[in-house]
Amino acid sequence: MSLLVVVLFLLSAAYLVAVLEDRLTNGRWRWLGPAWAGVALLGRESTLPRKPDRLFFETAPLLLLVAAVLAAAVLPLAPGLVIADLATGALFVNAALAYVLVALLMAGWGPDGAYALVGGWRFLGQVVAYSMLIVMPITAVAMRAESLLTTDIVVSQEALWNLVYQPLGFVLFFIASLAVCFLPPFDLPTAPGELAGGVAAEYSGARLAVWRLARLVLVVALAAATTVFYLGGWLGPLLPPWLWSVVKILAVSAAMLLGGHYLPRIREAQLLAWCWKLGIPLALLNIFVVGVLVLIWT
């Protein structure tokens, strides 16, 4: 039951994200735009590049979709409305997001094209940069909740949202989550205008439709993770819990799309330098500060 509800929610939220993305590229609100685009993609021929690694080429979009759905599977929308309330939920989110990298490497290697290959390996460098900034803020969140259960993490923010309790962690996690779903300014693997689509360059037709859907679901999953870890999940006055989750998740997705839209794309070397020289010390500082707060403020 909750599986069905969560999947329906992911799909409709992904649709809204697609509408917003359309607005950002075309400058017009077209509420049916993504639907027509999807139908058109399904109707078009899905070409195969010359000499592809067929296995990787076919698997990559599906693996990206599965990774995104699995990451969302442990995040609660309301009390009891979660696909799997794992005892290691916060760790499981990391594990699922790690497979985004595998999907992109497959998509990069599979089609035997230069742009795709460059994009795929670029994402590996990007992962080396951002992965610590996903793991370490989540560690601090789990420290406050004294649990890895995502539902416990939400309940722990009853008095004060983590956004206020550990703003440093929120900023780092938000930036890293932009990098996970390769949104601008971290869209190095796709890099329109420079790599001509990068990892997605060789995909067309139905495969591209799956790829785009997976990417949108990934954005929603990351927004849901930000909501659960930092914005108090379903907590809020007046409105029913599920509605609060929906509102917050949509707001975070919109912020993720808008945040990077006005920034220039960062260079790979700069990204690595910033993440390792500034991001990781800040993440460690965040863990330290949260540790002190947990000790003195119970």
Binding site: L86, A87, L91, F92, A95, A98, L101, V102, W121, V127
Partner: peptide
């Protein structure tokens, strides 16, 4: 062994991708 399983799944994804390059 849920913790160890999830940890194994998480660590190996990055580790083996780096192996690949």
């Amino acid at each position: 062994a849920e913790f160890l399983g999830v940890l194994q799944i998480m660590m190996m994804a990055t580790e083996m991708s780096i192996m690949a390059i």
